[in-house]
Design a protein around this nucleic acid. Structure first.
Lengths: 354, 354
DNA sequence: GCTAGTCTCTGTATCGATACAGACTGGATC
DNA sequence: GATCCAGTCTGTATCGATACAGAGACTAGC
């Protein structure tokens, strides 16, 4: 058994308090005694105050939780999520705080429990799917949190950092519409819950539950509405899982149709890259000319020449963590909207004359 | 103030133990009473047992630490490290365990403290630089750990998962030597501590402190020794920080020399990609033909056509976490060497006749 | 010489739970 | 009717520290 603080106190012949002070408040005792205590601790093999006991007594843990409402492995697969984590990490580093990554079991009951049991001082909630239940649990625990999306019913004291999804998406769609495209597919993750991969009929964009997806689809639709292409004329394609593979699989059949879309607007770069994969997989003679746009501007997008909407990923993570660790006095400052920019590359062009 | 377990007990008129059991051992009380307790808890806004207090009493935390002996942000910048993390995450997910990422302050004293204070049940130590001090602290705390490199003085009960660095490196170098290259540069991170970027004189490979770097350089040297090129004839180039930029900067000057190397063997893909960057940055008429090899086979390597040594990154993380969470009965099974494979792509070719 | 003030150090209360041994029921068994 | 047992619930000890008020000793200041 590892010795406790009491054991060190006994060995030196001082009180427990004094040993505690030797570690946590060196100014509370003489340097000489402190040395004696630390020496004795070394001798006994005392590894320093037990972090858990210390956390209990002090009332805080010194770490923040990062919540992905999806498989934890997803966080490392999605390049945007990785950049986000890097930002959180940078802020955590500056504050001397650790990051706890909490995997969530698939069943909601279990997932709630996982959030309840996480030993953290607060949460950065990265919005993947509907995370309302997670926010409930966090609020219930009385912990502060920052989410990465503006929420419709956000309380005044609720902090978030996001972008104007709708306007950003609209800018990409306006670019594509401006190039003359009218037969267009919109590709997104989790358009409707539990929907299969592939083309999907969606009555209206407000049917889409996931706020981020909804915002982006709405932005796409806005731009096309302006050139006279209504929602019903747009093909919505579901790609569950937001992976390159899923996107390629979901979009593939469209290209076999007699009149394939001349443009695909994807809800993320990962999906857009999947579309490019699907195109590349076809023999050259049977490869339609399709404009493709992404969203996020992950590192891979530049290499692929993908036209996309840039949003500052690391910045998002950094600011999320900073809002959490160092809350602004003015609650209005807790709502951050980051700038986005359309980045035009080679993956979009005018409609081919056929 | 959030209510405690005691408050719920008082409200229902039962003992604290019973409330505790309602959460942690449902079989210890009648279903009816359990419901009454949980109802009261909801009513009072009791968020469930305090994770810290529970950890203290139970003696374990339910999370494992992942230690990068470098900036935490490095972990998200290096694609190999990201894949490793993904593997750890997958294993953690299966075990219902959280991952704590602990940022280490630059000063060793502070860094020791950070490791001492981490509330975890064990550590996966990802070897970036010399991490002996970290292992010391962990052992001192009596916590189990798994490191990602075979260590020279590893105790029998010490677990690790790694590759045969030397043999793997040798395979890449043998390929390059077989192509006829004799004027060769070896590029690596932290060849000597605090050495500047650029070409470096290293008396012998055993001068290199970092075991991974040493192993790879030794492997490179082995293959060239076999074709009669001694250590002294090899140019060793230091690229501190293992970044693409650092590599490009460190290697650039070599290409200005009258007789530049015809091949560069890099200690990682990131460095190798940096070399390709440095070459691409030169005007076409002044661009030497240089064979380049990397190490790791990160996703970017394939796109860049980089010849490299593949090692299973996720596997490494997954196995590290599993050795930690589920220690094999047989201590010999705690030492895992993963297979590697030379992947030949376009970045290597025969020596140009000039 | 007396009051203040500063340094050190101690003692007790407390953080919020879980483990474990045992007490109390009520029915089944013989 | 005594015995046993399973099913429930309670009480006490404990996990390993920190906070805070205060006790002594010692120096300063007047």
């Amino acid at each position: 058994m590892k010795p406790t603080l009491q054991a060190v106190a006994d060995a030196v012949g001082v009180s427990r308090s004094t040993v505690s002070n030797a570690y946590s408040r060196p100014d509370q005792l003489s340097a000489a005694l402190r040395e004696r205590i630390l020496d004795a601790a070394r001798q006994l093999g005392y590894p320093g105050p037990n972090p858990t006991a210390r956390s209990l007594r002090r009332g805080f843990v010194g770490s923040i939780g990062v919540l992905f409402t999806s498989q934890l492995s997803y966080a490392f697969t999605d390049p945007f999520a990785v950049r986000f984590l890097a930002g959180v990490g940078a802020a955590a580093e500056r504050h001397g705080t650790s990051m706890l990554l909490v995997p969530l079991p698939p069943a909601v009951t279990d997932a709630r429990r996982a959030v309840e049991n996480a030993a953290v001082d607060g949460f950065c909630v990265y919005c993947v799917a509907d995370e309302e239940w997670a926010l409930d649990v966090i609020r219930h625990r009385g912990l502060p949190y920052v989410s990465t999306a503006p929420r419709d019913n956000a309380g005044a004291d609720e902090r978030y950092v996001g972008i104007d999804e709708r306007a950003a998406a609209r800018s990409a769609a306006a670019h594509v519409a401006g190039l003359g495209h009218r037969r267009v597919a919109l590709l997104a993750d989790s358009v409707l819950p539990d929907a299969p991969a592939g083309p999907l009929t969606v009555a209206g964009v407000d049917q889409v539950p996931h706020p981020t997806t909804r915002g982006r689809l709405a932005g796409f639709a806005d731009a096309f509405a302006e050139v006279g292409v209504g929602w019903a004329e747009l093909t919505v394609v579901n790609a569950p899982g937001n992976s390159r593979k899923a996107a390629a699989a979901a979009i593939a059949e469209l290209f076999d149709q007699p009149a394939p879309p001349t443009a695909v607007l994807a809800g993320s770069d990962v999906l857009a890259l999947g579309v490019l994969d699907a195109l590349a997989a076809r023999p050259a003679h049977d490869r339609p000319t399709v404009s493709v746009t992404g969203f996020d501007d992950v590192p891979e997008a530049a290499a692929a020449g993908l036209t996309t909407v840039r949003q500052p990923a690391e910045e998002k993570g950094r600011i999320a963590a900073e809002l959490l660790l160092d809350p602004p006095a003015d609650p209005a400052a807790g709502h951050v909207l980051l700038p986005t920019a359309l980045v035009v590359r080679d993956s979009t062009g005018p409609v081919p004359r056929s």
